[in-house]
Design a protein around this nucleic acid. Structure first.
Lengths: 137, 137
DNA sequence: ATCAGTGCAAAAGGTTTGCAACCGA
DNA sequence: TCGGTTGCAAACCTTTTGCACTGAT
């Protein structure tokens, strides 16, 4: 509560009800990756009267402020997660949709090398592994 | 011409005018990566009377048939390229939009290792490097 | 009183689909 | 012939935008 409003002020955004509720959602334990609609539905379920357009606007502002990272995984809907400062990539279980985070310093290094080899500097990258459990449930 | 109709029959698709023209576009030298709209505009410029919906339908069929690969790079529009059987990843020059292909057996191996380490088998992956020329023009 | 922030509805952008006409094996 | 294919328009889905209203300073 206190923490969230400090966070909002820190990035220069007014502390409003929709912003607080959405930020809290991301900072709760449990799910870390949400689409705009996920958030909209959760708020609806909590009796909140927050429009979908507002959800989109807040997500965009949070992304611009560096609070959230936006991912364009397959499937049309953008997915957002808190930017906790530790870069990582994602693995998606194609059967369950579960998102697993991972870090590989070696892959990061290879990417920079490959870009350099072609005369470029790496600005950003997107790596998603689509995986299936070894022993299907 | 002959080659294209054989290709179409091989994958079990009737040889029709729209399918031929679109397949030819991909097999021409030069550009390898097209959006549906790129194709639609090229066909228009060639006086072809092929609807955008048909372009989408043909692209979807070609993808299902394994002739094309579909990429969901950032920016809303899906990009298609011929599946020449040699897997590769992509680098995109963020200034010019240019697409560069590359292969890194080492990254491929690391990806499989990471998936395995988490108890999964790698089914597919998507890797895109966003790069900027070392010495800006 | 002011002005950012909000909800709603409409618009936008990319892609898909229903349908009647058409065409290729 | 006749079922697959196509063009057109309408529908769809996600995201953005216009606008009048609200609410905090």
């Amino acid at each position: 509560m206190e923490q969230e409003s400090r966070e909002l002020r820190r990035v220069g955004l007014k502390v409003t009800h929709p912003r607080m509720r959405i930020l809290q959602l991301f900072e709760e334990d449990g799910e870390r990756h949400f689409t705009a609609e996920d958030i909209y539905k959760r708020l609806l379920a909590d009796q909140e009267d927050i429009g979908l357009a507002t959800v989109y606007r807040v997500l965009t502002q949070f992304e611009a402020a560096g609070i959230l990272i936006k991912h364009n995984f397959e499937g049309g809907q953008a997915v957002y997660e808190l930017d906790r400062g530790r870069h990582h990539d994602h693995m998606i279980d194609v059967d369950t949709g579960k998102v697993i985070e991972f870090v590989s310093e070696e892959i990061e290094r290879l990417q920079r090398e490959i870009a350099a080899k072609h005369g470029y500097v790496l600005e950003d990258h997107s790596l998603v592994l689509y995986v299936r459990a070894k022993r299907p449930k």
